[in-house]
Design a binder for these strands. Structure first.
Length: 417
RNA sequence: GUGGGUAUCGUCAAGUGGCUAAGACACAGGGUUGUGGCUCCUGUAUACGUGGGUUCGACUCCCACUACCCACCCCA
């Protein structure tokens, strides 16, 4: 039995890779303009990093991590997200001593043991950006603006931006109490998962999909109405900054992030065009993450953006991806001597900067032309005994079938024009 | 973890309880013995997911399993 790719993983071949190259290059480009620099961290980390960073009670840590013990007895986890590794590296290398804030971007694979479906994989890829070292809402607005502009530049600008505040450790308990008080009379009507949420994290009941729960929750107290002065002020500032940036958004009090480290700002870019998993980009502020994983208080804000979901959305929008460069010149040869002459010419062309190809199957001339055609070659040069003898080559323009005769030493000049 | 759907050549895709399981694309060869795309001809494949069962006989009916897809949960 042949071995197959693992559940929830995807192989990417040249017929798709140009899309990846395009979004990767574009993302690096916009990050560059926004002043974010790339940071690379290992694919695996100590399990404890995520237990402390993402949070012990989250689904990610409780049931989705790829965790194993290595031969040295260490508990290792394939990274399920990018923020805590980046924060860990930032602290480890004392970059809080740099001029602040520190702005990083990354392009990483993430691993979560989930049941795959549309837009959900066990190995998925994400872009992320993080700003460390400031709690000013300029940073939050800047992060959101980068996501907004990037999605626009990728041709999916009609995607909806929703923002919210999830409060901070000071004001969150107030809301939690208010919410529990509100829900208590109708506790029995809640769906089973929400009954559990009532104990663990009642905020999540707010975005339950069940009709009964939605009805119950209709007039429930929202976090955004229970913010402390500091968080209220932050949210007002965020809105003002976004308005200054001319960014359209919608306040959505039901946004709740599934990672424990979020505080204050929470946002999502959502779409209904790619199935049920509509969050293409999501993020927020995490002022106490560094306290959890290190011993230093450094505030931060950032987002994760799913590359697979982005590409799906671009496809749904019929975005035209740049096509890969076709073969510029194909060398067809007839005979043994011509083969060696051709190989020599092939290398000269490649060193001169051309995308040059020949037939590594050494087919007959008809087959070689057919192959050149398949490669979408712009020009084909035929090498045979007469060409070697005369030093005059025939260059065929594949689109027009026009044949140009040229001295061998002038070939490169001809192709350059 | 819980549901629903699907499973026939490399790909797409017909099909009926019963002789050699269509067709298309792709691939290979030829019409054109040093010239592709179009067209015409020819050719190739141990294709019915796996394992049981019902039946004289199953690709077609039943059961189980597996894989993939989709949805819940949650998230990128």
């Amino acid at each position: 039995m042949a071995i197959k790719a693992q559940k929830g993983t995807k192989d990417i071949f040249p017929d798709q890779i140009h899309k990846w190259h395009y979004v990767e290059k574009s993302f690096a480009d916009i990050c560059d303009r926004y002043g974010f620099k790339e940071a690379r961290t290992p694919v695996f980390e100590a399990t404890e990093l995520f237990q402390r960073g993402v949070g012990d009670t989250t689904d990610i840590v409780q049931k989705e991590m790829y965790t194993f013990e290595d031969y040295g007895g260490r508990s290792i986890t394939l990274k399920p997200e990018g923020t805590s590794p980046t924060a860990r590296a930032f602290l480890e290398h004392n970059h809080y001593a740099d001029a602040q804030p520190s702005k990083y971007y990354y392009n990483i694979p993430c691993f979560r043991y989930e049941k795959p479906q549309s837009g959900r994989l066990r190995e998925f890829h994400q872009f992320g950006i993080e700003t460390f070292g400031t709690d000013d809402m300029i940073a939050d607005a800047e992060i959101i603006a980068l996501g907004y502009d990037f999605l626009n530049e990728m041709g999916v600008g009609q995607i909806e931006l929703r923002i919210n505040s999830v409060g901070c450790p000071k004001c969150r308990p107030n809301h939690r109490d208010a919410l529990r008080n509100f829900l208590e009379p109708r506790y029995d009507e809640l769906c089973d998962t929400c009954k559990a949420r009532y104990e663990t994290n009642p905020m999540r009941i707010l975005d339950c999909k069940s009709e009964i729960c939605q009805d119950i929750v209709k007039d429930a107290p929202m976090m955004i109405d229970y913010l402390c002065d500091e968080c209220t002020d932050a949210f007002v500032q965020l809105e003002k900054n976004l308005e200054a940036f001319k960014i359209e958004y919608k306040v959505d009090p039901t946004i709740v992030r599934g990672l424990d480290y979020y505080t204050k700002t929470a946002f999502e870019f959502v779409t209904t065009m790619i199935g049920a998993q509509g969050t293409v980009c999501g993020g927020g502020r995490y002022d106490y993450l560094m306290d959890e994983i290190g011993d230093r208080h450094v505030p931060g804000v950032g987002f994760g953006l799913g590359k697979e979901r982005l590409i799906m959305l671009m496809e749904a929008n019929e975005v035209e991806f740049p096509e890969p460069k076709p073969t510029e010149v194909f060398i067809a040869f007839v005979g043994e001597e011509a083969k060696f002459y051709s190989l020599n010419l092939l290398r000269k062309l490649r060193c001169a900067g051309f995308l040059a190809e020949t037939d590594a199957l050494a087919r007959n001339i008809k087959g070689q032309f057919k192959y050149a055609n398949r490669l979408n070659a712009k020009y084909t040069v035929v090498i045979g005994d007469s060409e070697i003898e005369s030093g005059i080559l025939t260059v065929k323009d594949m689109a027009s079938s026009e044949q140009i005769r040229v001295k061998s030493e002038e070939l490169i000049d001809l192709l350059k024009k």
